[in-house]
Design a protein around this nucleic acid. Structure first.
Lengths: 137, 137
DNA sequence: AATCCTGTAATTATTATCATTACAACTGGT
DNA sequence: ACCAGTTGTAATGATAATAATTACAGGATT
């Protein structure tokens, strides 16, 4: 798991609060990463249809209202893993347990991941923005 | 996130099916990792009270019945992260969003993690063993 | 035309993960 | 008492994942 997801939420929060057009350089300054990382993230968000960007012109704009964007939408937009729980890769197929553990764990991990994602779907970007305003006051 | 968690479940499944005493070397052969990795995992499981091991003597024994060990118990026993969702580390404190995003995301991530862990608590080692037997048949 | 910006690929640096080596502490059998 | 085998643990090295950086083509605005 990399930190693209939290970066994406951060970026979308900035765009939502949006005063002026935010260049990738500016966003990078707030997020604390290199501008190229920002552009990769906005690229994925654009591919997912969450924002519009145009080559050559600074700034990005949300395509929907913030209360219509869930944190699960964001999670799926970025390069997030199918499951945040990591499996060991080389169980011994000659052992009855080793031969089947991946399949069994995959089911368990899938269910746990579904529970996590379901919770993410209950929070919207608007909720995040509201919480940010609360903290700032 | 490392793969100690899935390794731990694998090891406990072997111990549960347990015919003879399983040395760390044997367990390593089934799991597909180095024996030292196994000993580190069993060490954590012992510290968490899930199994007994003795220095110098091969084998490990569960301290409770498999239906009394949930996958959440195992998750907490190993060196698993508080949240599987990763936060970016250097948001700019001079920016209103950057100053508060970690706090806001921490709440969201904690809730999502709680949903995941709640799901893990609903599956026991006995369930895993039963599923393994189903697959093997 | 000149300047600024995005999209993207490629490279390097950093960090995290795992394998391996090494060895002290301990056990059980001979 | 000795010895072979094992666990616990630290330390080191190899590999893989992550992020920073460089580079530049494609496009916009003045």
């Amino acid at each position: 798991m990399n930190s693209e997801y939290s970066i994406a939420v951060h970026v979308l929060s900035l765009l939502n609060g949006g005063d002026g057009p935010h260049s990738s350089e500016y966003l990078a300054g707030s997020v604390g990463v290199n501008a190229v990382v920002i552009r990769n993230v906005t690229g994925r968000l654009r591919q997912a249809g969450l924002l519009d960007t145009r080559r050559g012109v600074a700034g990005a704009a949300l395509t929907r209202r913030a209360d219509q964007i869930t944190l699960l939408d964001v999670y799926r937009a970025v390069d997030a893993p199918r499951s945040t729980l990591k499996m060991h890769q080389k169980p011994n197929p000659a052992c009855p347990v080793g031969a089947n553990i991946q399949s069994v764990l995959d089911e368990v991990f899938t269910q746990a991941q579904a529970a996590l994602e379901d919770r993410l779907s209950q929070t919207t970007l608007a909720d995040v923005t509201a919480a940010l305003h609360d903290k700032a006051s």
